[in-house]
Design a protein around this nucleic acid. Structure first.
Lengths: 302, 302
DNA sequence: TCGCTGGATGAATTGGATTCATCTAGACTG
DNA sequence: CAGTCTAGATGAATCCAATTCATCCAGCGA
């Protein structure tokens, strides 16, 4: 028998974890912060352990919370998506695009004005979620999938591939830290890690990057247990990097906006190979033309 | 901005869709049928279309309902699973096994007494769900995955493979229907279909079976639009077959219990190749011994 | 040291979910 | 065909669980 916690507490938790603020979560749900506090307390009692570390501030998720969050978030994303898809006439003129969370917020959204200028007649709905929506069922018209190889289950084309570099805030380097001239120098700074949702063992990570760097710079110790800061969510990790809390291995595509604006800089030039970004859709989609336009546009602004 | 329907209505819907009865759903949730009715009405108003076809009886899901159901169900399954996993020590002596829904209820559960007899000291918790749980995150200890080829992201071993046959209730044939001596005779009966959750275009289906049968029996018409009964859920389809409503293409493994007991019979001997059942777990799992025992047991009772 | 922000806590309140009572469609029975 | 039974619909009344209010406390910055 399935034992489901009160759903209200899950909704409160999801909003609070996403915004890392009870206040903002309360505003989003149209209630007072007190209500959020109570709901999360209920969930914490069910789990038998705290989900947030409230002090010292700022608010942060505990390990248990980090574990819960992506699942609950994806679930709600998916619920919202199917219900919208099932609902009578969801403005069938908009192209519904889904992409991974980090890509949506870091790459897609900042460039949407350019899209709008080029194709003002094609409205986009961006569904940023790490849940894998079912295109065949119509949960979205087009998906941007992030994978090592081309998806084979649907019509797909590769738009571009990324590489992974160590990146950090320029402030981190200028504020009197040791200069970085060689790979080993990176180890003087906090290293920021984040998990990959998929179980790719080959995924770019500090341990892989350091292994490659070691072949160039033998001074790098073989077993660096240097887990200074670890996040379950790529977006949280990037926020931490931008805030100058350390250096992370990031996709140059995902942080390209920050690199261009100077908010982040490459800390070293050694790159790990990354993944492909694929535009995926059902074959013979009724709005093939819009899909073509979108794929072409993505490639053009790469 | 994500537009989420009231979660209570989703819970009511999920229970009602799973049991195909407002009454039973109400009993499960510990409320009166009236409450279920109200909640589902709310969800139907949000979707702008009915989710259940109430009359004529029996209760059935509409297309929109069929579309919603698996997603909501998987979401709740996953929620329950992570919350349990996160909760303080869930009796760490039990081996948590997840498998696809149909396999859990049709194959695994009926054979559990045998397991219990052999390994009374190893307690099992069966999490039957079509959602893909995250073993690395500890949502379960062991997964039975159903796939064309061996999963590569975790330690896996093939337990057995299945084949797909047309099966039906013996009552269907004995009740004066035309005898089945060749493939074309099957077309005199209602054909029962069900969707595959994964997007496998090569998945065993009536159209594939008939295509193969046509090479033996050219009398089978090429384009048979014979969609008599269609289900989104394999379990529902099997229930319909057992109730004598028609013939379906079923996995011999999933219905093996019904075949042995005589509740179902093969309607024809032509088989389609199926998939493999894989026992999957994280490498170097702390309870490797239990996992070995389980894999060995599964193979032995195949 | 003093504000200021953001969250915790417990009692009081309220509004939305549930129930009650009643009604109807369809299925089964003889 | 009545006659009966099951399962769900409907609308008003009820009630309890979630929310708010009022207050308190910890951390942070000036």
């Amino acid at each position: 028998m399935r034992k489901l916690p009160p759903l209200g507490s899950l909704r409160a938790f999801e909003a609070a974890a996403r915004r890392l603020s009870f206040r903002d979560a309360a505003a989003e749900l149209g209630v007072t912060p007190t209500a959020i506090s109570h709901q999360i307390r209920i969930l914490e009692e069910i789990c038998g352990r705290p989900l947030f570390r409230r002090r010292p501030r700022p608010l942060a998720l505990t390990d248990a919370g980090e574990r819960l969050f992506p699942v609950i978030r994806n679930g709600f994303d998916t619920f919202a998506s199917v219900v919208t898809a099932v609902s009578a006439k969801t403005a069938r003129t908009t192209l519904r695009v889904t992409s991974p969370n980090a890509f949506a917020s870091r790459w897609l959204v900042p460039r949407l004005p350019r899209w709008r200028k080029l194709y003002p007649q094609i409205r986009l709905e961006i569904i940023g979620t790490d849940a894998v929506l079912n295109l065949r069922a119509g949960d979205a018209d087009l998906a941007i999938r992030y994978a090592r190889t081309m998806p084979t289950d649907l019509a797909a084309r590769e738009i571009f591939r990324d590489s992974f570099f160590p990146v950090c805030s320029p402030a981190l380097l200028s504020e009197g830290g040791p200069a970085i001239t060689r790979a080993a120098d990176l180890l003087h700074y906090p290293l920021i890690h984040y998990d990959w949702l998929n179980g790719d063992r080959e995924a770019p990570s500090w341990s892989r990057w350091l292994a490659v760097a070691r072949s160039v710079d033998p001074d790098i110790p073989a077993a660096t247990e240097h887990w200074d800061l670890s996040f379950r969510e790529e977006i949280h990790a990037i926020d931490a990097v931008a805030a100058g809390q350390g250096i992370a291995i990031c996709s140059d595509v995902v942080v390209s906006h920050e690199i261009e604006s100077g908010a982040l800089v490459k800390a070293h030039d050694l790159a790990l190979p990354g993944y492909g970004f694929y535009v995926v859709h059902v074959p013979d989609h009724p709005r093939q033309a819009s899909i073509e336009a979108f794929a072409a546009w993505m490639r053009s602004v790469a």
